Computed example of a mutant assay.
Amino acid sequence: MPVAQITVIPLGGPGSPSISSYVAELQRLLGETPGIKFQLTPMATVVEGDLDILFQVFRRMHELPFKKGALRVITSISIDDRKDKELTMEGKLESVRKKLKEG
Rank of each mutant, 00 (worst) to 15 (best):
V3G: 08
V3S: 01
A4G: 05
Q5Y: 06
I6H: 01
T7S: 14
T7L: 13
T7M: 11
I9P: 03
P10D: 08
G12R: 02
G12E: 07
G15Q: 03
G15V: 04
S18N: 14
S18M: 11
S20A: 15
S20N: 09
S20L: 10
S20H: 02
Y22F: 15
Y22H: 14
A24Q: 08
E25C: 08
E25H: 10
L26E: 06
L26R: 08
Q27A: 15
Q27K: 12
L30N: 07
L30V: 07
G31V: 00
E32K: 15
T33W: 08
T33Q: 14
T33F: 08
T33V: 01
F38W: 15
Q39M: 11
Q39S: 12
T41P: 06
T41D: 01
T41E: 03
P42A: 09
P42V: 04
M43A: 14
A44P: 08
T45V: 02
V46S: 11
V47M: 00
E48F: 06
G49Q: 06
D50V: 10
L51F: 14
L51C: 00
L54K: 05
Q56Y: 00
F58P: 07
F58C: 08
R59V: 04
R59L: 10
R59M: 10
H62R: 12
E63S: 12
L64P: 10
L64R: 14
P65L: 02
K67P: 04
K68T: 07
G69E: 04
G69K: 09
G69Y: 13
A70V: 00
I74S: 10
I74K: 07
S76T: 15
I77G: 00
S78V: 04
D84P: 02
D84F: 07
D84M: 03
T88S: 15
M89K: 08
M89T: 07
M89W: 05
M89G: 09
M89F: 12
E90S: 15
E90M: 13
G91F: 01
S95Q: 15
S95N: 13
R97K: 14
K98L: 09
K99Q: 08
K99N: 11
K99T: 07
L100Y: 13
K101M: 11
E102V: 00
E102G: 10
E102N: 11
G103W: 11
